[in-house]
Computed example of a mutant assay.
Amino acid sequence: MHGMTSFDDIYDRPDPRAYFTRLAPLSYEIPHHAQAVFRRTVAERADPGLTVLDLCCSYGINAALLNHDLTLADLYAHYTSPMAARLTTAELIEYDKEFYGARRRPGAVRVLGLDIARHALDYARAVGLLDGVHSDNLEEHVPGPALMAAMADVGLITLTGGASFLSRRTFAALLECAQRPVWVSAFALRTVPYAPIASCLAGFGLTTRTDPDRTYPQRAFTDPEEQRAAVRAVRLAGLDPTGRETDGHYHTALYESRP
């Protein structure tokens, strides 16, 4: 997105340590807000065979928080610790298998991950956070056979980051493959319009609701220029940045789409 600092270099490392180390000073917190929302949505979806597809899943952080007795603060502490810093990626993978295995919640749901960051996907799969991973770029290509087959069981699509880079193409491609009713629960920055995606979902029989007065902080701005661009974009969208973006943080809105 124009005016937004790029963090591309931390999204596709062999493990998540750089990701958490870079984002900690910026108080990146949207997965924390999503944790309770996604757990509640899974319970409301009430489908015993439910599979969740986490879009732009990176290292499986939403899956970690959905299915394990952990907070986002726990993950920051874990991956920025001196102990983690001493390990090789291979050693960290072995450690994380036990770390997550010991904290798995009863009633954990199956989670698939979709992201173009192959290293991040491989890590999340290796440590057991994701039950299946797909690196299809649906903005540019149709889904491959594996993703098409996997969509048969998906009943909930989640998203906490990446709405700025996704269009209706990705959502249409996924819903065209769906075999059961799909709900979508998405956190999107207020700097980008979600209406085109909501319009696409409406074509598949989904009604999108959002509470314009309820926002969720995403992270602090990296510099005044990034803040100015965000405030300008929010105003252009017809929204009020006062007390939100003007106070130094990106804010997101929650969009819930259901039949």
Rank of each mutant, 00 (worst) to 15 (best):
A124P: 03
L70P: 01
Y11V: 00
D74V: 02
P82A: 14
I197A: 01
S58T: 14
G3P: 06
A149S: 09
D69L: 08
L236K: 15
T88V: 03
L65C: 06
P16Y: 02
H33F: 14
A77G: 05
E140M: 11
T158G: 06
H78N: 08
R103D: 00
A178I: 10
R118N: 05
D8K: 15
L23A: 04
E29Y: 07
S135E: 09
D223N: 15
L254N: 00
L50Y: 09
V182A: 08
A90V: 06
Y95G: 02
Y19D: 03
A188H: 14
A178R: 15
R228I: 05
T80R: 14
H134N: 04
A146L: 11
A220E: 13
G248F: 06
V231R: 10
H32A: 14
N62I: 11
S164N: 06
G107C: 05
E94V: 03
D96G: 02
P14W: 12
G128K: 15
L121R: 00
S135T: 09
T51L: 02
L156R: 11
P241G: 04
T215V: 14
T252P: 00
A126P: 02
L166M: 15
S185T: 13
R104T: 00
G203I: 12
L65A: 03
H249T: 05
H2T: 13
R110I: 05
A220M: 12
E139C: 06
A63W: 05
V154K: 13
V142S: 14
Y255M: 07
A186W: 15
D153L: 06
F221R: 13
R169L: 08
V133S: 04
A18T: 08
R190V: 01
D240T: 04
N67R: 00
P14D: 15
I30D: 03
H68D: 09
P217N: 09
E176C: 05
D9M: 10
E44Q: 14
Y95M: 07
I197K: 01
G162N: 10
A237M: 13
G238P: 03
Y100H: 06
F99D: 01
I30M: 07
V37D: 01
A43V: 12
V42G: 01
A18E: 12
A198F: 08
L175H: 10
T89C: 08
V231W: 09
D54N: 07
S58V: 08
H251E: 09
I30V: 13
L189A: 06
G107S: 04
L26Q: 05
Y59L: 01
Q35G: 04
T88W: 06
P196K: 13
R103W: 03
T21P: 01
P181T: 08
V111A: 02
D131A: 12
T210D: 07
Y95V: 02
A24C: 03
A77R: 15
E225M: 11
T252Q: 12
